[in-house]
Simulated assay, not measured.
Amino acid sequence: MAKVYEFVANGFEEIEGLAPVDILRRGGIDIKTVSVTGSEFVETSHGVTIKADMKFEDADLSDADMLLLPGGLPGSTNLNEHEGVREALKKQNATGKRIGAICAAPMVLAGCGILDGRKATCSPGFEKYFNASTTYTGELFQEDGHIITGEGPAATLPYAYRILSYFIGEERVKVLEKNMQFAHLMNEAE
């Protein structure tokens, strides 16, 4: 079974942090939330307190198939300032294992050099953190190799379903989308 870890810091955006956890768990993926606050408790950008599955200090990330970063402020800034998170991302990238970041969080990847020479998206305005070699696309979500980035809150569901497809395939994801009425939403958009 695939192992995914999502780093959460005080000030993370609720939908960007919790919807991927929900969708991946519904899809049978072992995803754990990892608090970087020094406590299991993390306060979201809108004042909701959640209890993470584990603290960063207790996490063994050696079996990670994917690392995720939700956006939000000051959550993304707090993730960017956490040296352990930055080192884990660099190690994950060096091994070519999957990494995802959405909204403001791609700035963390950019700061680690992970987006150098890649295409990426983020919340408009945060592309200023990208290096000159990164191509900002402005897409809802952008894949480039083992990296996926998302634009913001509205991108969360398609971003999370795409991530799930890496592990269970697109056909099974389509079933889940239908069961969660997402397929209905997509049909109306066409």
Rank of each mutant, 00 (worst) to 15 (best):
A2Q: 01
V8I: 15
F12K: 09
E13C: 09
I15H: 02
E16R: 10
P20R: 03
D22M: 12
I23T: 09
L24E: 08
L24I: 09
L24A: 08
R26N: 09
G27V: 04
G28S: 06
G28H: 11
I31S: 03
T33P: 02
T37M: 06
G38P: 09
S39D: 15
S39P: 11
E40D: 14
E40P: 05
F41W: 01
V42A: 06
E43W: 00
E43H: 00
K51Y: 02
M54I: 04
M54N: 05
K55N: 11
F56M: 15
F56P: 01
E57W: 06
D58R: 02
A59E: 12
D63K: 14
A64M: 02
D65K: 02
M66F: 10
L69C: 05
T77R: 12
L79G: 05
N80A: 15
E83I: 12
G84I: 08
A88N: 00
K90L: 01
N93C: 05
T95P: 02
G96H: 08
G96R: 12
K97I: 03
I102Y: 10
A105S: 15
A105V: 13
V108Q: 09
V108Y: 03
L109H: 06
A110P: 12
C112V: 10
I114F: 04
I114E: 00
R118L: 11
R118I: 00
A120D: 07
C122A: 14
E127H: 09
F130P: 07
F130D: 11
N131L: 11
A132D: 14
T137N: 11
E139Q: 14
E139L: 07
L140C: 12
Q142T: 15
T149W: 06
G152M: 12
G152A: 12
A154S: 15
A154Q: 13
A155I: 12
L157T: 05
I163W: 00
L164F: 02
I168W: 03
G169K: 13
E170R: 12
E171G: 09
E171H: 11
R172F: 03
R172D: 15
V173A: 07
K174E: 15
K174W: 04
K174D: 15
L176C: 00
L176S: 05
K178P: 03
H184E: 14
A189M: 10
A189W: 00
E190V: 11
